[in-house]
Nucleic acid binder design. Structure first.
Lengths: 236, 236
DNA sequence: CGGGATGTTGATGTGAATCAACGCGGGTGG
DNA sequence: CCACCCGCGTTGATTCACATCAACATCCCG
């Protein structure tokens, strides 16, 4: 009865009890565990199932021929790995677990049935995809035009907000179970420079990051530092 | 009877004559002209209409508080400016004309009716949105992990392919009606550096750019230089 | 036939990458 | 249970890709 996807969707659309039950049913069958650093979907695969993240963090990433890795999205509990799976398209990137991950595997048929029974489910899929594109656009702007410290501050604000929506933020403290090399590949930098930037955020009293927990000491200051405007995440 | 959106969609889905007529009808009413450098939608606006680009180039962009501009997408003929308009969401970015642009204005009702009459229309909207996200991801990888020359080469390959799909490429020659400052804001660089990079692509015999026309002298070489893998655009 | 936007080139500056070294911690195998 | 070791975090020295600053050429439009 407690599904991070439902928790997130309830912020945007009005779900009746049957809608909630249907969405919840989708996430109950075929629960699977994936170890950290394992792929959930390989690059250029043609996924048959959709996956909903129930616990843990994953990422979409592209591996360039010479080994460089670009993380193009972070997937948190409540996020759909493959909102396109039921369209049977070949994906252009891999999906990898950054931590141990629990996912629910959903077949195209299940989604089709759910949509037929409860049209609101399709509305949820649209919302989810629109939110994804909004986040993508913000990342493009970040990597293209924000400085190192602005990028990191912006990402922390984004993650704080996204985790709050699914009930995973404990006030100003949020889990941050990724390594500095992971952050580097997500922000288009090196882990060395992430480390220095992190230090700068710490010494300015904005955040502390210890033991895979991020504590935001000054949210307003952090938002200002990252030029963070939360409207893009509130597709309501 | 000649609509760039239809031309693009026919590469992905099988359209019957009625589908084609319906899609074409959407693009026939309320054709509007927008001058270069005018906004089609303002940042943070809450668009009521969807706009389909019939002619000219536009872009999605975000203006940072201090004036920096990030172009997060290029919109070519056949692209939908607001695949989300009929979901009534507030947008998080502006849409601006880069050249004089002709757009078709479409109301949510028209889209709703079209979907009800011809379910294939909704399929087309899904495809369009999925293609958009794939391009977004490629841009994130570009700006994050590709060098200046790789980025520019990659963008030229992308535009060549996208323009070909709507019949706007004349062999290896494609229109490129944007300024170097525009390219700079799209690739996260400065116009000065775009200029030098362009020179490098020219002296390596890969492309020439003159009079708003890009000629690709060596497509294979350009694709290699840009680490370009076209699968992401072929969501078929 | 101007004049402002755009393109081009050179000189110089700098933010972030690279290279390198070392501490630390947690997992693993002997 | 301990020793090892590999990945991660941290810091300093150096390099480099790209930004910035500046000057001038060129194009296009009115």
């Amino acid at each position: 009865m407690d599904n991070p996807f439902v928790r997130k969707m309830e912020r945007h659309v009005r779900l009746g009890p049957e809608d909630r039950a249907t969405l919840d049913g989708l996430a109950r069958q075929h629960v699977r565990h994936v170890a950290a650093r394992q792929d959930i979907e390989g690059q250029h695969s043609n996924p048959y199932h959709a996956h909903l993240i129930l616990d843990g963090w994953a990422c979409r990433y592209k591996q360039l021929p010479d080994g460089r890795r670009a993380i193009v999205a972070l997937l948190l509990p409540g996020d759909l790995c493959d909102p396109f799976a039921f369209r049977r398209v070949r994906i252009d990137h891999a999906i990898g677990a950054l931590t141990p991950v629990t996912v629910a595997r959903i077949t195209p048929d299940q989604i089709g049935d759910a949509i037929r029974d409860r049209p609101m489910v399709e509305e949820c899929l649209w919302r989810e995809l629109l939110a994804t594109t909004a986040i993508h656009r913000e990342w493009i702007a970040s990597v293209g035009r924000r400085s190192a410290i602005e990028r990191l501050a912006h990402l922390f604000c984004e993650l704080h907000l996204r985790l709050s929506r699914v009930g995973l933020a404990d006030g100003a403290t949020v889990p941050m179970p990724v390594t500095q090399p992971d952050l580097a590949d997500a922000l288009g930098q090196t882990s060395v420079h992430i480390n220095r930037t992190l230090k700068e955020l710490r010494t300015s009293g904005l955040v502390t990051l210890r033991g895979r927990l991020l504590t935001i000491r000054d949210l307003d200051g952090l938002m200002e530092r990252g030029l963070f405007d939360p409207t893009y995440l509130q597709l309501a």
